[in-house]
Design a protein around this nucleic acid. Structure first.
Lengths: 372, 372
DNA sequence: GTGAAAGCGCTAACAC
DNA sequence: GTGTTAGCGCTTTCAC
């Protein structure tokens, strides 16, 4: 028995549907009953003269349907302009075909490239990307993860903003959607992590400088909070140690986050006593700031001072001389992360692993023999 | 009356729920009944000893609830680790709090910056971003829009890949979710469009060159398919016309998409008869290719050749001399787009408008008097 | 092969 | 204030 009709002659549920459709369209209420409504599978089924279940089977490409029936349903669907409601499908089936991505800032070209590559892999398999920026703030990260969990994403990709296994990361890892960590691993979290071998990258880079007989090599660091940066510094120390060169603490400079910080720090270093003969920038801003400082101090690169950077960006090839750098495989990271997540979502239950990608030392013109 | 229990003692619907939860977790089927399940609002209501409606009201922050009741419900929710299911909420309420974004490529720093700014505005109001790349391919754009429609997003932001009002754009515009166009307007589509005044930007830029007494100014273009590029060329012509300088068609060069194309085209231009005295690049790749070509031809900038670009990127300040450019307000575009969409979703039904943002001419060192 | 019916987890109109 | 109830649009047994 349908509920009683109201004054306007519409049954309550029907009116609810119209109202909803209208609310979305923001039409004046007076025109209530004329508003177009989205066709549902029920409409399609009715038009095709079959049951909803059959219509769903024909449209959802599962189960058995006669080919004649299928065609009839498909025709009805396209005539009605039927667009399946994936929210309803997700609710009923428990599969949302959505993947959540949480990272520092999509505006950062490094992350932008990663997201792009990842998105290609995932979109191709029918997943939609839900994106959230954390600004490297654990609290924003927590909120983002909560939202994504509430939206019942089928998988999660996170560039963790902290190297601790925070409660929200733990619960994300424990949730039913597989989690893959990107760019930074987190201790004590048993999940796949796609990371770069920063230690080896930095070691190779510093060895390259050592081969040029540099003994006083400065490292310019923004902040030791981020794991990749710590690893790069570790690689620097490893290289020195391997050659038996004692590390001079004054050559490890914590500059601060911006290019300007790096600039100032490098100037102080150059103008101070015991000037280094080479500078190693641990990220693109540090390298850039250092380069400008060297330039402004009237030193020539690489004759008076060698310069080596981490992370390859367009500008490194355009300055004079072009800057030698350790390049990160950003696109490859994105691709692999997407693939790992896909495989987890496909049911891979093997033991979580860390996937180390290797960097590449690109020799350009900014490194040369140490001045004597 | 609940359906009959099956052999394992679980009611059918209950088992479906467990199965679903398991399927997500990929546990061996044998452990069926021990799998943890997400708490639902019904569980919370039961634990708090209230009805589902009351629990929903307490948790959803709407309607009247006694403060004691509210606290009891909230306590129960947090104890159960309740995470509201936003799919269900969206289905029931008709509001998904999600916004779809379709653009060429997030990996492009211009788009990356835009998305970031946009995301800040929208996230703050509780919207989640669903992202899709079109690669400027109308067909991929169509598919993306279909997916987003199926997910019932509350709003759409599109950087149209074609300047025609394609059927899929039309139907997106006609749908119940408001649509805002970004970076490029589409003729015959009555929707808000956030665009840059490329004509004025290019005109001002070319006037700047004309003020330096340049009469032979080349424009390097990748492709006239994109509206912004056409507008820039139009601005170029306007500036010439205003000064009564006849346009020489050979100076409008359609180079092709990449920096290399621009490089080759510029070289041909320089080595040909009647070399121009200034080059105007209509996007960052064109400008860069042109710069390298000028350099490689042994010409000095700006003494032998002036160079002016469109779109400010980091490298423009790092090369020698730094390149003067027309800067695009990317972050501002993202912010404004987000705000327009918010206001439409909030019910603004005013007539759709085009919002023109202005560019800024940044004078650096790459333009100077025309050689005599 | 197709249909009937019972959910998925939530909202919202209405009654008390 | 709180409970009851009827949905939202789809999937998924199970029976025929």
């Amino acid at each position: 028995v349908r509920p009683a009709d109201s004054a306007d002659g519409l049954t309550r549920p029907f009116r609810a549907r119209v109202t909803r459709s209208l609310r979305a369209k923001r039409c004046p209420v007076a025109r209530l009953r004329y508003a177009p409504m989205d066709a549902t599978i029920t409409d399609v089924a009715r038009a095709a003269g079959v049951s909803r279940a059959t219509a769903a089977r024909a449209l959802g490409e599962y189960g058995y349907v006669g080919s004649a029936t299928r065609e009839r349903v498909q025709k009805a669907a396209s005539e009605l302009g039927y667009v399946p409601n994936r929210l309803a499908r997700a609710l009923a089936s428990g599969v949302s075909s959505a993947v959540g991505v949480v990272l520092g800032d999509v505006g950062d070209p490094f992350f932008g490239t990663i997201v792009r590559a990842m998105s290609d892999v995932l979109e191709q398999r029918g997943y939609t990307l839900l994106l959230a920026n954390s600004d490297e703030d654990p609290e924003r990260e927590r909120v983002a993860l909560e939202t994504l969990a509430a939206r019942r994403v089928d998988g999660l990709i996170v560039v963790p903003s902290s190297r601790a296994a925070t409660p929200h990361l733990r619960s994300a890892a424990a949730g039913s959607a597989p989690l893959v960590l990107l760019d930074r691993a987190v201790r004590g979290l048993q999940v796949d992590s796609i990371i770069v071998d920063n230690v080896a990258g930095a070691r190779t880079a510093v060895e390259y400088l050592l081969d040029y007989a540099h003994h006083r090599i400065a490292v310019i660091v923004d902040d030791l909070e981020f794991e990749p940066i710590r690893e790069r510094v570790a690689g620097y120390h490893e290289a020195l140690a391997a050659r038996g060169i004692p590390a001079d603490d004054r050559l490890t400079v914590i500059a601060g986050p911006t290019q300007q910080h790096a600039y100032d720090a490098t100037r102080r270093l150059i103008e101070g006593p015991e000037r280094p003969t080479a500078v190693f920038g641990t990220n693109t801003y540090m390298t850039l700031g250092a380069m400008l400082a060297v330039r402004d101090c009237g030193l020539r690169i690489p004759d008076d001072m060698s310069l080596l950077g981490f992370d390859d960006m367009q500008w490194t090839t355009l300055v004079d001389p072009p800057v030698s750098v350790v390049a990160l495989p950003a696109a490859e990271m994105g691709r692999l992360t997407g693939e790992r997540l896909l495989s987890r979502m496909d049911g891979d239950t093997s033991r979580p692993k860390r996937w180390h990608l290797t960097t590449m030392l690109i020799r350009r013109g900014s490194c040369g023999p140490a001045p004597t």
